[in-house]
């Protein structure tokens, strides 16, 4: 049997764990399964309801009538697949190895404290990715170079504005504007400028919420799924808004 305090500690941890996963781009059913597994490992029953911005969870002691219920908001974290895989693995380790709460908590904080890739390297990789993308669409090498510069600049703008906690939609519009303005430089020196313009903003496409939205809806978590899709569609509209200024300015030269 667990004391009220122990039960509260468990509930606090699971709430923290689940909101971290939901905030960093993991689809709903995986979060519920992972949290459930941790609950089982700690000898409690866990029930959870997930909304787009909050979760409600109750932790029941299997040996007594004690219940601990918490309503926790989901923090807007950057998408992080490392949390997705390592914290899912942690839930299995807890379940198979029956770790104590302290041990689980220690490993959880170790994963969260891990250093992420250096920003300069990410800017380089994203630039190369979008440049390769431009090549896939048939852009010539001039367009590829321009897209690399446009992407690196736009992505840096996006990171900078996100650090300042500017509204998400404004961040996406301004980054798309930056990238497509720079990409329209391709108009002056090659024939595949429209491919450069088209690809320069594609690093902004919110692929993770799009796919997670589809998975959530198909697994019956329609509320969260639809809200993810709405967010993704709005962001895509923002990208379109951002790139329409250079299109209007240079419309006589494109197509």
């Amino acid at each position: 049997m667990k004391s009220k305090n122990e039960l509260k500690e468990i509930a606090d941890f699971i709430a923290d764990y689940a909101t971290c996963l939901l905030g960093s781009g993991v689809h709903t059913s995986r979060v519920i399964r992972n949290s459930d597994r941790i609950g089982k490992a700690l000898g409690v029953t866990m029930k959870m309801t997930s909304f787009p911005k909050t979760i409600i969870l109750s932790v029941y002691d299997t040996d007594s009538d004690n219940v601990q219920t918490e309503v926790v908001s989901i923090p807007p974290l950057p998408i992080n697949f490392e949390y997705n895989s390592e914290l899912s693995g942690l839930s299995w380790d807890a379940y198979d190895g029956l770790l104590t709460l302290d041990e689980i908590r220690r490993r959880y904080h170790a994963v969260r404290a891990r250093r992420v890739m250096p920003p300069a390297l990410i800017v380089l990789l994203v630039g190369l990715a979008n440049a390769a993308f431009c090549r896939l669409f048939g852009g010539d090498w001039g367009a590829v170079g321009v897209v690399f510069a446009a992407t690196a600049a736009g992505f840096s703008v996006r990171r900078y504005m996100q650090r300042l906690k500017v509204n998400h939609f404004i961040v996406f519009s301004v980054s798309a504007l930056t990238s497509s303005m720079i990409a329209s430089a391709a108009l002056w020196f090659d024939g595949t400028a429209e491919i450069a313009l088209a690809t320069s903003v594609l690093y902004l496409i919110p692929g993770v919420p799009l796919i997670n939205g589809v998975i959530d809806i198909m697994e019956g978590h329609s509320l969260t799924g639809v809200s993810r899709l709405i967010q993704a569609v709005l962001l895509i509209i923002c990208i379109a808004v951002g790139m329409s200024l250079p299109l209007l300015l240079f419309k006589s030269s494109v197509l």
Partner: peptide, 20 residues
């Protein structure tokens, strides 16, 4: 090859574990 470069770069935005 170009798709692989694009995949790595777009993946890097979402911080996958290094082994992936």
């Amino acid at each position: 090859l170009f798709a692989a470069v694009a995949g790595i770069g777009f993946g890097a935005i979402s911080y996958p574990p290094r082994r992936a």
